[in-house]
Write a protein that binds this DNA or RNA. Structure first.
Lengths: 328, 328
DNA sequence: TTGTAAGCGTTATCAC
DNA sequence: GTGATAACGCTTACAA
């Protein structure tokens, strides 16, 4: 059942049917006929053919560093509805934290075959990333990191860490920091800097061994870093962690070493994932508006794909410190 | 740059180029010329046009109940590589546990527009599911549930629960069970039945209040069910949970009520997700081969899409009980 | 307002 | 072995 058949049944040319489906430039009478036939037959235009003809795929590629991450899934949830409402289907491309695969996907998607727009949930940027992004012929929005010259939506990690550290140090004076790789500018560098700025503000000097960087984003990384911290003999009453997962690992480890949380040691995280309210003790953390940032990115992309402005926009999302039981 | 241009540059007809790309029915000499031109230009055929012509999209639709689930992400990981190797791209369709959305996606994907094959990571089956699946014109594999008449790959939840319950009750005699919705046959009904069978085997009678069903798959569901259990005054030394997350919630709750795990109460889960080895105490659980089941499902689907056998196959995956510190 | 006709970039069917 | 040529199902000038 194709457009020709509909045209035949409605007694018009297929061009008229096409117009009915698109411009709408059709007389009331024929419009009626066509509608009737389409309703009866349940005809749906072939997107394949539309795509070939128009060059639009109605697909957006979303590149994610991993499936099964609280922040990623909230971002994706945030964009899903808007894309669907605008007739876009999502192709999720999972790179499993392989930066090279990320670049490959950018190239793949922007090859003349693929999608109308790309959302890149970013972690680190290599030269290859920048090149691929700049060479990219279709609208692209970077999510989760700030990138000069590209439309991007990101969290305000510097101030978030600054504030949560300040908040925790109202009841502590010997902080430590457990961070992730510094080449991840948002989650690594900015969070670290925010922590340091808060300490400086309070005139607290941090012994070098109280800062451990380069961890993975996982619970066991948190466990291991905390163990390292304890074994190094560091004197600590507050552990500021770069992510919730690291904080969970820290709490577990502290417990096994007989330290009470928050009585002996306070712990804070970042992200406010589903677990933070159900672990024991509940976790003081930064609520990042991941869902909303996903929506925001989708808005920008849809706008660009519909031929809207092509100039880059930067959106810095707000945050909120959620005080719970892991701090005093 | 299209096939015509390549043909012109290579001094052959575009039909020959097409043959070179497909059948390979081309003389050595021209084959050489064409290869040279293609290498130089970096020409890649337009999948859009191929799709229009051949009716193949080289896309598979994977319907998942939620992003951000350990089991789902492992299944997806398992299938990703094989699909890629076979030239298929994955469209992940996230339903967020909306059974209706699942049916919609099946219909969407099997409409003449969309994909070459479907993998449905299933939870529950309504009549609408069955109908949509039966009406489905393209190969489909059900993953995570057994379904008569469809190719499916699933875990052996009955025996898994039977075995882990038996194992835990070597050091306990007053078991309770925290389960999920029974209309989820695998994770709900089968796990429940496996538990009951083990109790029966040991001649243990279970007070009704020791069995709580219908929970969500989340940590806080586990917390709440455990609280309900404790508040009901149930006398329990072993809590068998239908999922790891429920077990985490149970452990947290028990701790808050001053019960020691495993000294006072043993806890077991199902799934063996990333957290099970980092929580404290580490979790005794069933390791399900989710990754491998994803791969298996992908194999069956690729086979079917390549015109292999169309008869339904059922694959029941093995499992393994992992004894850790949450049991005695 | 409508229809005719020319593509979009392939692959499949023929003759040669 | 190879090359015309006709589809695949649609959109869009352009002419009517």
């Amino acid at each position: 059942m194709d457009i020709n058949e509909i045209a035949r049944m409605a007694g018009v040319s297929r061009a008229t049917v096409s117009r009915y489906l698109n411009d709408g430039y059709v007389s009331e009478e024929k419009r009626h006929m066509i509608k009737k036939v389409i309703d009866e037959t349940g005809y749906v235009p072939s997107q394949r053919a539309q795509t070939l003809r128009t060059g639009k795929t109605k697909l957006v590629g979303v590149i994610i560093p991993k499936i099964s991450s609280d922040s990623v899934s909230r971002m994706v949830q945030g964009m899903t509805k808007l894309f669907r409402e605008n007739g876009y289907q999502i192709i999720l491309a999972n790179t499993d934290n392989d930066a090279k695969a990320e670049v490959d996907y950018i190239k793949l998607f922007s090859g003349r075959n693929k999608v109308d727009g790309i959302i890149l949930i970013a972690t680190v940027f290599s030269a290859a990333h920048i090149r691929a992004l700049e060479a990219c012929s279709i609208p692209t929005v970077v999510l989760g990191q700030k990138l000069e010259g590209q439309s991007c939506v990101f969290q305000d990690d510097f101030h978030a860490l600054y504030e949560i550290t300040l908040s925790a140090l109202q009841h502590g004076s010997k902080p430590a920091f457990l961070g992730v790789r510094e080449d991840d500018v948002s989650a690594g560098h900015q969070r670290h800097e925010g922590f340091m700025a808060a300490c400086k503000e309070l005139d607290i000097r941090i012994p070098q061994k109280n800062v451990i960087l380069g961890g993975k984003f996982s619970v066991d990384a948190g466990y291991n870093m905390t163990e390292e911290l304890i074994e190094s003999g560091a004197d600590v009453d507050t552990i500021v962690c770069a992510t919730d997962n690291i904080a969970f690992g820290a709490i577990t480890c502290l417990r096994e070493y007989g330290r009470r949380v928050p009585e002996d040691v306070q712990v804070t995280g970042v992200g406010d994932g589903t677990l933070s309210q159900v672990v024991s003790p509940t976790l003081t953390t930064v609520h990042h508006y991941y869902r909303e940032s996903g929506l925001e990115a989708a808005k920008i992309l849809v706008d660009a794909m519909n031929g809207g402005t092509t100039i880059a926009r930067e959106v810095r999302m707000g945050y909120e410190v959620r005080r719970r039981r892991s701090t005093r």
